[in-house]
């Protein structure tokens, strides 16, 4: 039988959710509404005049083959960042969980990169891979590999993925580690007594029990790779070479704040809002079904 507690009156609940509603309204609904409104105009940068163009901005964008290409770039980038930040994090968490001595030290060290701001992480990786003075590119050069992310799109993509995923591994590690601690020891011990090896136990018991965390991290990481990787891309490649690392959110920035084209920039924000909304719905509809709480 289902238990349900019913609160009487509406004042207290309304009061309790009011701060959240207020914050969402001011920082989310109002700007989002503004973006939708502005996407129908071509304004001049100073706000002195603007012309109503209806869906003209969207037409212009979708007719631009570089804009369409940046959808593919974004998909590739997001998938790579999500994979590269979640798989190593899970691996490290499993390893750290097995430690008996010094796990505190490992934990602290592994969480450290999360404290580095994206732009600084970008600069750090940029220096290591700098085509002329970078340490890593120098070693690669010695091995006979000519690293040049300034001209090679694939290498540029690899570098921004690496730099974006690196700090994120810590974040994911933290969640995986906490979730691993919550896996009941008795279940694992029972399986061990039955003769299951470590990896068998991992695949059949631990991983399914981690699924709520994995799902949460999947959503959060996809959103991260969509929106927060801007700093890394800006510092390392500025979207180049030849647009190969221009993800959707970077184009919003570059059209809005480099090109001062606020109409196109707003239209792109609206499209981005739509895309991320759809992705989240898909994730909740299909992926969540496979999650065991």
């Amino acid at each position: 039988m289902e238990k349900r507690v019913v609160f009487r009156g509406w004042l207290l609940p309304a009061l309790l959710i009011a701060p959240q509603v207020f914050i969402s309204a001011v920082f989310f609904f109002y700007p989002a509404g503004q973006a939708i409104w502005q996407s129908l105009f071509i304004p001049d940068p100073f706000g002195l005049s603007s012309q109503f163009v209806g869906l003209g901005n969207f037409e212009y964008l979708l007719g631009d083959r570089f804009y369409r290409a940046s959808f593919v770039t974004t998909a590739v980038f997001s998938i790579l960042v999500t994979l590269c930040s979640m798989i190593p994090a899970l691996f490290l968490a499993v390893m750290a969980d097995r430690l008996i001595k010094g796990s505190g030290v490992y934990r602290t060290m592994l969480i450290w990169p999360y404290a580095v701001a994206p732009a600084i992480a970008g600069v750090l990786w940029l220096f290591m891979f700098n085509t002329r003075v970078g340490v890593v590119s120098w070693y690669l050069g010695n091995l006979g590999y000519d690293w040049n992310h300034v001209l090679n799109g694939g290498e540029a993509m690899g570098l921004v993925v690496l730099a974006s995923a690196w700090g994120r591994i810590s974040y994911n590690f933290l969640f995986f580690f906490a979730a691993l601690q919550a896996v009941p020891r008795s279940v694992i011990e029972a399986a061990a007594i039955d003769g299951a090896h470590f990896w068998t136990r991992f695949w059949t018991i631990v991983l399914p029990l981690l699924s709520p965390t994995t799902f949460f991290l999947l959503v959060v990481n996809v959103v991260y790779s969509f929106f927060e990787t801007f700093g890394v891309i800006h510092t390392i490649t500025s979207g180049g070479p030849q647009q190969s690392t221009t993800v959707l959110v970077y184009k919003v920035f570059s059209d809005g704040f480099v090109g001062q084209d606020l109409g196109s920039s707003s239209a792109q924000s609206v499209i981005l809002l739509f895309v991320v909304g759809m992705l989240t719905i898909i994730q909740f509809k299909f992926v969540e079904k496979r999650v065991h709480y």
Binding site: P241, G259, D261
Partner: peptide
């Protein structure tokens, strides 16, 4: 107009030449 961004486009295209693409 939009010259900062046009320079970005030119940079990209020049990179295409330097890379031999």
């Amino acid at each position: 107009g939009s010259f900062d961004q046009i320079r970005g486009i030119i940079d990209e295209e020049l990179e295409g030449i330097w890379a031999g693409d």
